[in-house]
Write a protein that binds this DNA or RNA. Structure first.
Lengths: 377, 377
DNA sequence: GACATGTCTGAATCAGGCC
DNA sequence: GGGCCTGATTCAGACATGT
């Protein structure tokens, strides 16, 4: 993991002058051709969903779909939208690393079509996440429920792409030590955060709140990662990425949006690296083989191990296995065997008697780790 | 509207002996041929989700998760699932009145495909409604967000079908006089409500809570209406419809489910017509994660927290944890750690210097909550 | 009987490194 | 790329049992 990470950074740095931390002008399918394959760690996409904006629709061969013709029936409209979706998802998929993941946000007008197309293209959905709005617009005609949420799809590049980033421990710690759920509560973007033009009108109709992007980026990327937004708009993704110590790439067609986004991003001050450190759990700690506890003298060969309730006993052998009678195996296999289970974490199962007190051997591992840390430093 | 209603009742009464308030056995496409065209007022469908589960999943305590592995949830491919979806939606559409509406529930495994197919067939989506579970199953491997919701699509028969029923005022009244939102909070079906066999095991793996069906039926049907459920299972739709003074039609393939459903429905006593105005209580105060204080700007990353007497200092990190030196943890864990305790309420322990005054962060939480408003309930 | 503790379970697409 | 091995990972609520 660490190795892949540093290799990725090198690649990024080599071509950074061309596209890293830049807004590329143009249609996203064409503009993304400027990026190398497998060069971004994450994608956040907020594609257009208003089917009336047919000018934005491209067929898979990138020919333009004609402007709205009221004679169109809805089947043709849906087909055109699907072709557009397919085209940009394919372009994005090419530049996404195998270990990367993609977020797409939408409403009921488009998200079902987008999600089905993502599955058809081989993306592997990890979660659908609901953004619950604290202050949604009311339903004025009283004919429906208040439309109080939008849906995000979070997906890996493919079913067998297992190495995606998920900062589980950060999310859990940030959520009062329980797992972060798939429903998130945030206000819509308004007030000072909402970009306004000189005319006092909002610059972009669907500017997303920075808090939303913040959780997206914190959950599924690491500092130094590259985040691509193929529908950059006024650059919320870029502004949040920069503040959180990530790189960004944006693609946008409208010069007005590009100008506003660039000014906005230029004003962002990145947070200090120390503040951006990730909360890592046990997974990230260096692996300590059981044998090193013996080698370092924390456990003597011949020591007796027991489970917490003293139901089973095993003897530590010099080679790092534990034995019951004539049978010997790793701490994990032996723990599984005595319990009749298929698997067991031997570190938390076995204990040693230390001055009359039963200590779990995971504590000894922690001690071994800190000794190794001092030695390495 | 009243005229159409009474005409509908006449039709229902004329053929009631054949299929009204009955469970039809068989595949839903074939069984629905027994119903006249345009004969039901509403549809609630809980189709197979096509979960595509691979191996078995163990909890951290090594117990096995009892997953859905029924044959009825297995499909060869997305294409096969799409064909199945299209077929039952067409069959259902034939028997749905032009003024009727349809609800379909699903998870991210299938709901996007179902939604796209519904649009393709001409259904007109009115809302997507999120069922937020108060007690969802955790994510045991810590590789994703806790999957804490399911999605329902509510749609009219076609774009120009304007006469669908929506009981806006009763929904609003039931929701403390503000519009009912598109995100609903309910517990999963468990306890006495969950049907168990003589072996003590659940009869059906995916029984839905009656509270969910209750809100669906109360919002989009009138007393005397006919509600069709093409995947009847153990008959939650029928039981709730009967209790609420609506008629039902169920279609189910498995005799075991049919038997359980029939017994269940027979035991239901319909509510008195006068009582059918249902009120629903408020929920507890919404929980606000510490990270929302950061995301909402109430606390900046890098801010220093101290206890009331200034004995300890910790720095707020962008990911929602707090750090002392190299160690980071949640506000609660860090509060416990510095005091040498096993637990600590970080909300009341940590303070922030605000204009020369030390404020406990619990005050900021109240501020965040009031900004969040009713949406948390 | 009240309260504390322990057990069980629910629509789940749930690993990663090294040889 | 396949196989093997290590070892990381759970929330809310219902219900049963123990004090």
């Amino acid at each position: 993991m660490a190795k892949a990470q540093s290799a990725a950074l090198k690649v990024s740095e080599a071509v950074s002058s061309a596209w890293l931390d830049r807004i590329l002008k143009g249609d996203c399918v064409a503009a993304l051709e400027a990026l190398p394959a497998q060069s971004v760690d994450a994608v956040f996409a907020d594609p257009p969903y208003n089917l009336q904006l047919a000018g934005e629709l491209l067929r898979p061969d990138q020919s333009r779909v004609d402007a709205v013709d009221n004679a169109w029936d809805k089947f043709e409209s849906f087909a055109a939208y699907d072709a557009f979706t397919r085209a940009w998802l394919l372009a994005v998929r090419r530049v996404l690393k195998p270990t990367g993941s993609i977020w797409v946000i939408g409403s009921y007008h488009n998200i079902f079509r987008v999600g089905a197309t993502m599955q058809d293209l081989g993306f592997w959905i990890l979660n659908d996440v609901v953004w619950r709005k604290t202050n949604p617009m009311p339903n004025f005609r009283g004919r429906r429920f208040q439309n109080a949420h939008e849906t995000m799809i979070w997906a890996a590049r493919s079913e067998d792409a297992k190495g995606y980033t998920f900062n589980y421990d950060s999310m859990k710690a940030a959520n009062d030590d329980v797992q972060m759920r798939s429903d998130w509560l945030f206000p819509i973007c308004s007030g000072a955060e909402r970009l306004k033009g000189e005319d006092g009108l909002k610059v972009h109709p669907t500017q997303k709140p920075e808090a939303l992007l913040s959780r997206v980026i914190l959950s599924s990327t690491r500092p130094g990662d590259v985040v691509l937004d193929p529908f950059f708009g006024t650059g919320t993704t870029g502004a949040v990425a920069k503040r959180l110590g990530r790189h960004f790439v944006g693609v946008e067609r409208e010069q007005e949006y590009i100008d506003a986004a660039q000014r906005r991003i230029d004003a962002v001050e990145p947070l200090d690296a120390a503040v951006l450190a990730l909360t890592e759990g046990k997974r990230a700690e260096p692996r300590v083989p059981f044998s090193s506890l013996i080698e370092s003298g924390l456990i003597e060969p011949g020591t007796e191990l027991t489970d917490a309730k003293g139901r089973w006993r095993a003897v530590v052998r010099a080679d790092g296995t534990v034995a019951i009678g004539n049978e010997a195996a790793s701490i994990h296999r032996m723990g599984a065997k005595v319990q009749g289970l298929s698997a067991c974490n031997g570190w938390t199962f076995w204990h040693v008697l230390d001055g009359g007190v039963l200590r779990v051997i995971d504590e000894l591992r922690h001690e071994a780790r800190s000794r190794m840390g001092r030695a390495g430093a």
